[in-house]
Design a binder for these strands. Structure first.
Lengths: 133, 133
DNA sequence: TGCTTCCTTCCAGTCGACTGGAAGGTCATC
DNA sequence: GATGACCTTCCAGTCGACTGGAAGGAAGCA
């Protein structure tokens, strides 16, 4: 199948497929005599795999390292598991950062509610943001 | 004071200060006869304000809109509060996304633990990532 | 033959917040 | 007058995952 059909089937853009090819995430397909990319049905699976892995938060670089092992025929479960675990640590760190930011923002919002806006006139001071405990 | 001293005092780089000036976040300072930037002590406060606002998760564009109101002498508490509240909604959405991703990853990790790696040999399938319930 | 739709390559831009580096000017100190 | 620290401007690059657009070739149909 040509790139347009693959794109429609896998619900990605043709641009994205060519981009994936350019970074080595999908292999170069056969070409028709006129130079069009000609994909096998397996390409749909590969794109689906990439999208699923992406949905779990893996970056394209991480997905690529899984795919390379898969392509080499290696038992990739172990590698994938390590990647997944590393990513889990990252996600936990991100969540922690966001929760800290969230608490700070809540604090600001409450302080803003408690303040009289007419007293907030010093152009070099904003009582909402400044003056944290 | 010159840019190096300001940078050291406010714990930012000179590059960052010039960048902030280029996007209008800090005003153009006076210049010495030789063309060096010459800052008033108030610049330290402004940078400190920017860094604090940034630490609460506001983007530079958002900080700029607060600063513009402050510079205009307007009562900015109300505007700040709205920005803060909007950002709170964003953060909650981000946290939710991350928690979903986290649950998926945990699931993957458990599945990986339960699998026998020697059965993961089909180069087009990875039992860890695929076959989600 | 013309029209449309699809395909090709290649280059450049997006977002956010900087950072690096080149080429050259200025100031204080030895 | 030489050295070194500091300053100037300007241009380009980073990261990640694409997206836009130009210029031109190919396939199918009336």
């Amino acid at each position: 199948m040509r790139i347009g059909e693959l794109a429609a089937t896998a619900a990605v853009s043709t641009k994205t497929i060519r981009y994936y090819e350019s970074i080595g995430l999908v292999r170069e397909p056969e070409r028709t005599r006129s130079g069009y990319r000609d994909y096998s049905p397996a390409a749909v699976e590969r794109l689906r795999f990439i999208r699923e892995a992406q949905a779990t938060g893996l970056t394209l670089a991480e997905i690529q390292s899984v795919l390379e092992l898969k392509d080499a025929g290696a038992a990739s479960c172990d590698h994938t598991r390590r990647l997944v675990e590393r990513h889990l640590v990252d996600i936990d760190a991100q969540i922690t950062r966001l929760e800290i930011a969230r608490a700070e923002l809540l604090d600001l919002a409450e302080r803003a509610d408690a303040l009289d806006p007419t007293t907030c006139t010093d152009p070099n001071r904003c009582q909402v943001i400044e003056g944290s405990p």
